[in-house]
């Protein structure tokens, strides 16, 4: 029976992942900031087959609380097989261009707080010497684009941090997986028109994530075609890229 910790458990992607583990009787420790929503998620997972669900309510951007939180999660499950970092915010790029404080708030949630949480988590995982950490980054971190570079820069920073962490933890028996979803139909993207073949459901992405966490692979693009798309986007020379509206 897997013991699974999820930070940002009310995220649509995280819920879809959790449901797949729940069917197999997993035990959960779920952290999120909205108590009512978290209760609804916990009840759902219990009904679907989770053998135990513990919840923690709080703001995950609040770094001083991370040490106690990770400690609590480890003790609640008596060992962590799998931890998933799923919380995040999608800032309004235009607002962030005029309001540096707002920009920093989003960097705080999407990058700094993840660094803090992963640092605590690494200590726990090293001590137990097994387990897998999954971190949700984004294809937006693969190249800065005028429409979304504040968010992209946080995810890019996160990618390098996770890369280094994977390097460090490999020899300790701990796997670290960077997950890069493309366009996923979730509340985060509510303001986007969601037509076309590039949009995936949270459930589809979750299937890929569960498989990647199982194999412990380094990086997952999900759905798969984003690997090719991002390769092309990274290869476009700057003198051409700056003329493209992306």
């Amino acid at each position: 029976m897997k013991r699974v910790v999820i930070f940002g458990a009310t995220s649509a992607i995280a819920q879809a992942v959790a449901r797949r583990y729940a069917v197999d009787g997993a035990r959960f420790f779920l952290a999120a900031r909205n108590a009512g929503r978290l209760d609804a998620v916990a009840a759902d997972l219990r009904t679907r087959g989770a053998s135990a669900v513990e919840v923690w309510v709080g703001d995950l951007a609040d770094c001083p609380g991370h040490a106690a939180l990770v400690d609590l999660a480890g003790r609640a499950l008596q060992g962590v097989d799998c931890a998933l970092l799923a919380y995040g915010t999608l800032p309004d790029q235009k607002t962030c261009e005029e309001d540096a404080a707002e920009a920093l708030r989003h960097i705080g949630t999407n990058y700094s707080s993840a660094v803090s949480l992963l640092t605590q988590l690494a200590t726990l995982m090293c001590a137990q010497a097994y387990g897998t950490i999954g971190v949700i980054g984004s294809v937006a971190g693969d190249r800065g684009r005028q429409s979304n570079y504040l968010y992209g820069s946080a995810k890019a920073g996160l990618a390098v941090f996770v890369q280094g962490l994977r390097h460090r933890l490999w020899s300790r028996g701990v796997r670290v997986v960077l997950i890069k979803p493309g366009f996923v139909d979730t509340p985060m993207t509510a303001a986007f028109p969601k037509h076309g073949p590039l949009w995936a459901s949270p459930d589809r992405v979750a299937g890929d994530i569960v498989r990647a966490l199982g194999s412990g692979q380094a990086t997952l693009y999900t759905p798969w075609f984003w690997r090719g798309i991002m390769l092309v986007i990274r290869l476009i020379p700057d003198f051409i890229f700056r003329r493209i509206r992306l």
Binding site: A40, D44, R48
Partner: peptide, 9 residues
């Protein structure tokens, strides 16, 4: 469709 959680069985 996003209100797709079980409450109890």
């Amino acid at each position: 469709n996003g209100l797709d959680r079980f409450i109890h069985f």
